[in-house]
Design a protein around this nucleic acid. Sequence first.
RNA 1: GGCGACGUGCCCGAGUGGUUAAGGGGGCUGAUUGCAAAUCAGUUUUUCAGCGGUUCGAAUCCGCUCGUCGCCUCCA
Length: 539
Amino acid sequence: MSTAAATATESDTTSPKPEIRIYNTLSKRKELFAPLRPPKVGIYLCGPTVYAESHIGHMVGPVIFDTIKRYLRYSGYDVTLVINITDVDDKLIAKSHQRGIPMSQIACEMTADYLANLKELGVNQIDYLPRATDHMPQIISFIEELEKKGFAYAVDGDVFFDVARDPNYGQLSNRTADAQQGEGGEAAGKKRSPGDFALWKSSKAEQISWDSPWGPGRPGWHIECSAMSHQILGDTFDIHGGGLDLMFPHHENERAQSGCCHDAPMVKYWLHNGLMRAGEKGKVGGKSDREPNPDEAAAGKISRSKGAGGLAELIRTQTGERIRFFLLRTHYRSTIVYGEKILEEAGTSLETFYRFFDRFNEITSKVETHDHPGQLFYDLPTPKSRSEGDFDPAGDPLLTEIHAAREKFLAAMDDDFNSGAAISVLFDSIRLLNRHIDAHSLASGADPEQSEVKSLIKSATVIRELSNVLGLFIKPPATAGGDDQDTAMLDQVVHLLIDLRKEARERKDYATGDAIRDRLSDLGIALLDKKEGTSWERS
RNA sequence: GGCGACGUGCCCGAGUGGUUAAGGGGGCUGAUUGCAAAUCAGUUUUUCAGCGGUUCGAAUCCGCUCGUCGCCUCCA
C-alpha cells in the first residue's frame, strides 16, 4: 500500500494538489484540507460499543469514512483509518450478567456481527480495529500522565478529569463551563465540579476489573478513544469522525484529555456525520429502541431495523450495495431519513446502472478479438489515482463529455465529499453512454476497431474509476434474498424459456411468446428484449 | 430552560449571492418495439415553509413567525 501511495504521490508532484475542502465542526466552516504530515493522513472514527447487534444507523459513519479514505487515497494521500471497538462498558457488563456468559464473549460475538455487516456494505478500508481491552496499559499510563500534570484527581478508587483546568473545554460543542454534564451523575459527590467526568471507575467485587494504581477498576468511555488514537496516530492527527450525537460529551472529553496530556491539539479536522432517522419516529437506535411505544410498533416498517438481527436481515433482503448507495445519496452531514420505501427507491435507481453494465458486457463480448479480450465492465482496468485516471479526449465527442463529467464528479467530491452530487454525475454519464450506444447502433454488432466502440470502452473505464472511489459497482451485484448457486440455476432455466420464446416469435406465434413472458412476469421475472438479445432481471 | 440543525417542485434529494434550480423515483407524451419492457427525447418544474429586510441581483445573507428534529444522560 505504501509503495503504491508513494508512486501516486510522486507522480502528483507535477500537477497541483487537488484542493479538497472539508467542513470542520470546530471552526464551523469548510476549510482547505492540508494534512499535518503529507502525504500521510490519519483518521480516527468512533466505532460501536459491542453489546448488541448493529443496526443500519451504525453503518453511516463507516460507509462515509470508508469513502473518504478511498477518495483521499485516490487523491494521492497515504491514509490510515482507525475504527475502535468499545468492548468494556456498563451495558456490556449488564448484558454479561443477564446472559450469564463472560463479557468478552458477548463482545466477540457482536464484533463479528458488526464486521460481517461492514463487509457486506463494502467497507474494507479499515487499517486498525483497536479494542479497548487490548489497551489497558496505554489507558492506565495516559491517566497517570494526566494525574501527574494536575488535570486529573483520584477519589476512592475513581479518577476524574478536572474540567476547570482545561481552558479550551467546551470549544467543540460550544458549551459554557457551567452548562456541562448536568448534575454530575451518581459520582457527583466525589467530583470537584459536576462537569468533571470519569477517567477510571472503581469496580465492585463481582465486576470485571483491571488492576491499576488506583485499585481494581475499568476505564471511562472517553479515555479509551484518547489512548487508542494516540497509540496508533500520535499526539495530533488529521481527522476525527463520529456521529453528531458524540460531539458532546464524548468528543469534547476526548479532546480535553488528549490536548492536556500531550500539550498539543488532538485533531486538526473534526468531522461529524448526520444521524439516521426512521420516518417520523425519531432516530434509529436511539431512545425509541429501548422505550418502544405501541404506536411505533403499529407503524411496523421501521421495526425491522431494530432489535436483534435487524441489519443482517436487512442486508439479506436489500443487498449491501443498495444500502451503501442509499447512504451515499445523501450528504454525510445531513440527517438520513430511513424508510423501506426510500430504500426500495434507491434500489430501483441502481437498476439503471446494472442494466447498463449488462448492456456494455453484451456489446463488448461481441467485439471480442485477440486484441480485445471480451471486456466485461467488472474486469475493466481501474485507474487508482486521480492523475492516473486523467486523459485527453482528443476531440472525441463522447470522451469530451465524459471528461467534463469526470471533472464535475471530482469537483463535487472535493467540496466536502459531496457524494450525492457525485452520484448524479454518474447517472448523467450512464445516459450519455446509452445515448451513444443507441445513436451508433452499437448494440446490434460492432467492429472492435470502430472509434465509437473504443470511446465507449474508455468511457466505461471512467465510470468504473469514479464509482470505485465511492465503493460502488466493484463486483457484480448480489441478488437480493437469494443465494448465488440458486441464482445460477435459475438463470439457466430462464434462458431456456427465452430460447423457446424466441423460436415462437420467429414463426410469428406471438401468443405463445407473450404467454411465456407474462407467466415469467407473474413469477417476478422481467424479460428485456434488446437489439443485442433478450436478457432478464427480477422485477 | 441552554446549545444547535433543518424546512427545495407529486415524492426523495444536490445546491450558501448572478446562465433555463443537479440527479433519482413516480405520472404523462413521443421515438423505438409485432405488442410490452428496457433505452432515448420531452413534460410534470419561474419555483425553493410564510412574512419583511439587505442587494443591481437571494433558494442562498439578515430579522421575525410557523413547523420538524437533534444534543444537553448511554448512543454511529
